[in-house]
Design a protein around this nucleic acid. Structure first.
Lengths: 350, 350
DNA sequence: GTTTATTTCGAAAACGTTTTCGTAAATGAA
DNA sequence: TTCATTTACGAAAACGTTTTCGAAATAAAC
């Protein structure tokens, strides 16, 4: 009942462990006859190499770690799917951990992955992360780390992102193009780079259109697991504070859906009274009423790309080649739906 | 720059590897002084045990495998979250694989996990799975496997499920209680147990209420990643086939949302013309219009429970205790929303 | 027939840890 | 002092694999 080892095969064939090992790996210095014999025996005994021994010997686990802020999340679960699918193709397995947007957890988890001996890490930073020693600790072990979506500009490693600033600019411009003249912004937490960039894109679009930037129109939400409620609350507050707002660009779809729900309940017409643009293109956004105009964020592709990037670096390190860090920017697209009005004909076109 | 080992610590302190190992693990036959010395040195050198060596020696990886049909799925991602959280508490890491509802993939993935040396497997079966040798292969290695949600009755192992039949009965009864007299059912694929059970619950509710069971009112959908379209298609077909149907019990929320969308587009009023009850209670269901009456399925709890169950068995096997298989049935609840009418006063109550 | 090249195999070390068992030194009892 | 006990440590084997290196055995070349 014991698992069968190389020794077992060797004994049965009256040859050495060395020969068995080599035969199974098609070393050129083993005769065809022996190879056939060994492989047959391995098959009949249903031999499978002991991963622990292989790992120890080869100093690699064919396993990578993945840390994300939140698993129950349309975007992130799409990313997971992309990563897992691509990893499996290359014979890699993925260990998933959830930081819950907490720096402390993230730190612990990196240590955990380090002591588990993963070959690399893919990470999307927690909102609370402002220090990066845990990340550099990992990279100091000559192991690759690739950041995606929520990154830290300051850290030297490969990154897979979208152009948040540009996407936010386009989203805001769309509000302007469809007639909005006083546009609010529900931004994300203060630290994350993408939340900052989206805010900057929003601001730039206003200024480029000669519209004043008014800080009192910017509301903050953490975008954690209470996003929906945050959206409702912010919307309620906005209606109290400003009765002249006719458009909002919102950091993420779930918050936008909360806001739309609040507007619906209060009898505020979307888009006639207020237009709304979200961010991420959750599936849900296409089925709510009115359906949500939003920025499509390629989660699956981002996961796939991030793994490819990590894989490349794992290989480079293994082959003692210099690793060159990449910054890959994926395309986004504005998805026009019913939460914004039809675009007005532009002056230039008349 | 090499990772520090027990040997390194031993050399620096002029003691043996054995003593270092024992000191770090607080063996009683090492003096307090030596222990202190060793631990201090370990700390200053930032020693961390080589997981590969530990695994090899201890024959365990502190890692479990998780196979689910689909990652981008509200219910399953909730399950993942529950599993990962609970596993981390116990020092276990979770490797995730997605079967894509394919038996072939599922089989390959079990082999992969086996050769990776996971300590146990949690699995929710693919729709296509009708043979179970890959599962018994794994269990033959004296390693525990726990099934959840989509299970196979025939396999002897622990299971964490809900009472699908009862839940479906309650859902159908609710349609009857609110005045529906001709009730259709969009069922899931043919093989999965839960899809069968939900169908049986639907049927029994009809018969218990002296309503005829009409097979032509049962539509099948695969409930894969095309669920939304399936819901729309089935709804369209239903409207063509039967103009007298006034209620539908639908196997899963995403399909129900597709159906409601189709009804909305065709001007069929929900719930006035047709009432709809879904299954799972995706978050989305609370925000679509009309909001969806559905069965709440405790994903997070199911994940948590499944891991606990697996963990118990891992311990039992390690301690050479007999393992007793459990069948844990979690509670569900009917969530009444706007896609069904108010319940009629019952005769008995008048 | 001798030398050289080629083919085929195996001994042994290494990866880093854990644990059994033995033993020397220190302590206690007599 | 002597014997028994306790305390503190280390040698060595084991986990199963991979790879280097050397050595037979065979074939080829002269």
């Amino acid at each position: 009942m014991k698992p069968v080892t190389l020794q077992e095969i060797a004994d049965r064939l009256n040859i050495s462990v060395t020969t068995v090992s080599k035969a199974l790996k098609d070393y050129p210095d083993i005769s065809k006859k022996t190879k056939a014999l060994v492989k047959e025996m391995a098959k009949t005994l249903n031999y499978r190499p002991n991963a622990f021994a292989v790992n120890l010997r080869n100093r690699e686990s064919k396993t990578i770690g993945l840390i994300i802020p939140e698993i129950v999340h349309h975007f992130f679960s799409s990313v997971i799917k992309g990563i897992v699918a691509q990893a499996e193709k290359k014979g890699y397995l993925v260990i998933i951990l959830q930081s819950n947007e907490s720096y402390e957890m993230e730190k612990k988890q990196i240590q955990l992955l380090l002591s588990q001996g993963v070959d690399g890490i893919l990470i999307s930073l927690a909102n609370g992360t402002a220090e990066y020693n845990h990340l550099t600790d990992f990279m100091d072990q000559k192991k690759p780390l690739v950041m995606f979506d929520k990154i830290a500009k300051i850290i030297k490693c490969s990154k897979v992102i979208i152009d948040d600033r540009k996407a936010a600019y386009i989203a805001t411009q769309h509000l302007i193009d469809t007639g909005c003249r006083r546009i609010a912004h529900f931004r994300g937490a203060l630290l994350p780079q993408n939340s900052i960039d989206r805010f900057l894109g929003y601001k730039k679009a206003l200024l480029d259109n000669n519209m004043p930037y008014d800080p009192s129109l910017v509301y903050i939400c953490e975008c954690g697991d209470k996003s929906f409620e945050e959206g409702k609350m912010n919307a309620r507050q906005l209606l109290k504070d400003h009765n002249d707002v006719d458009g909002i660009f919102i950091n993420t779809d779930m918050v936008a859906i909360g806001a739309i729900t609040e507007f619906n309940e209060q009898g505020v017409k979307v888009p006639d009274d207020i237009s709304v643009v979200g961010f991420s293109n959750w599936f849900m956004s296409s089925v709510i009423s009115p359906s949500l105009t939003t920025i499509d964020q390629p989660g699956y592709l981002m996961g796939k790309t991030a793994f490819k990037c990590l894989y490349k670096e794992i290989k480079q390190i293994k082959n003692k080649q210099p690793v060159v860090f990449e910054k890959i920017v994926l395309d986004t697209a504005l998805v026009k739906r019913k939460s914004t009005k039809e675009a007005l004909p532009q002056m230039e076109q008349i």
